Amino acid sequence: MIPGTINMQYIKPLVYLFTFFWGILGVHAQTLEIGLMGGGAGYMGDLNQNDPLKISGFSIGGYGKLNIDGYWSVGLHYTHGTIKANDAESVNSQFKDRNINFKTTLNEVNLQIDFNFLNYFAGGGTKKFTPYIFTGIGGVFYSPKAVYNDKEYNLRFYQTEGQTEACRSYALNVPYGIGFKLQLKNNLGLFSQVGYRTAFTDYLDDVSGKYPDPNVWENDAYLADRKFLSDPSLTQYGYPGIQRGDFRKRDTYMFVGIGISYTFVSQKCYTF
């Protein structure tokens, strides 16, 4: 497979799953809800190991959702955001010495299930507000980049740890989080949520395992760039075999924000 291309064996199951749920719910669902959301994005991984609430970028997204009743709904969600981190800004002296940085754009599509604790949706239900939780399954496209000496590098093309997995630009993810919904007027609603995503990759930040042996790039036309991007440390920190990232096998990212929704309600949907 050419580095950076999409392996369809990972994408087809998601397409089939989305199609199946939309077909079933299109028959049985009572209402359609659409919404827009904006806010911040954060990341936990090899460059931010201890702060799950740190915001490093922005996010914006939208969804189409089918409300089965006042408690359950299933929706297709799209979110665009950015995350970043920079060792040079860390308070950890070892991180400063490691001197790695990255920034990546995230484009995410998820199939998400919501559960309301109270019987609610804007335009129906018996309550005007509710806390809720959600989970689901989806996929995210990403492409980490780094800047050194005012030059930007697309890191996944350099195999900075000598591993082909770093060349991928997509991964499956599992979203989960909590939120609060409030009916504003008639079919119009307001919501706020914080949601985390466990990505099935450790390369959102292009950092995962150990510093490689430079011989893996022998006679490579980009050898000098590969060596530097693999180890941009200030004091030749990255000897082959030394741990480059932490020991967790998956990166996590977060979207937090506030949004507005509109529910299209048929006459029969006012009673549950």
Rank of each mutant, 00 (worst) to 15 (best):
G4T: 08
I6E: 04
Y10A: 09
I11R: 10
K12C: 06
P13H: 02
T19C: 13
W22E: 07
G23Y: 02
V27S: 13
A29Q: 06
T31G: 02
I34C: 10
I34H: 08
G35M: 01
G39D: 03
A41T: 05
A41W: 09
Y43K: 02
N48P: 06
Q49S: 13
P52Y: 02
P52H: 02
Y63C: 04
G64A: 15
K65P: 00
I68Y: 15
I68T: 08
D69R: 04
V74R: 00
Y78N: 04
T79A: 08
H80C: 07
G81Y: 03
T82S: 11
I83Q: 09
N86C: 10
D87A: 00
E89G: 08
S90F: 01
S93Q: 14
N107V: 10
E108L: 09
V109K: 10
N110G: 03
Q112F: 02
I113G: 09
F115S: 01
L118A: 04
L118G: 09
N119L: 00
F121R: 09
A122K: 06
G123N: 02
G125A: 06
T126R: 01
F129Q: 05
G136F: 03
S143L: 01
K145R: 14
A146I: 11
A146N: 05
D150G: 08
K151Q: 15
Y153D: 06
N154C: 03
N154R: 11
L155G: 09
R156P: 11
Y158C: 05
E165G: 06
S169N: 15
L172W: 13
L172V: 12
N173C: 05
G177S: 08
I178F: 13
L184S: 08
L188N: 00
L188S: 11
G189W: 00
F191T: 05
Q193W: 04
G195F: 05
R197Q: 08
T198V: 15
Y203E: 04
D205V: 11
D206P: 03
V207Y: 07
G209H: 07
P212I: 00
D213T: 10
D213F: 05
N215Y: 07
W217S: 04
D220K: 03
R226T: 04
S230C: 06
D231N: 13
T235G: 09
Y237V: 03
G238P: 00
I242C: 11
R244K: 14
G245T: 09
K249A: 12
D251T: 09
T252A: 04
M254S: 03
I260C: 07
I260P: 07
Y262L: 01
K268R: 10
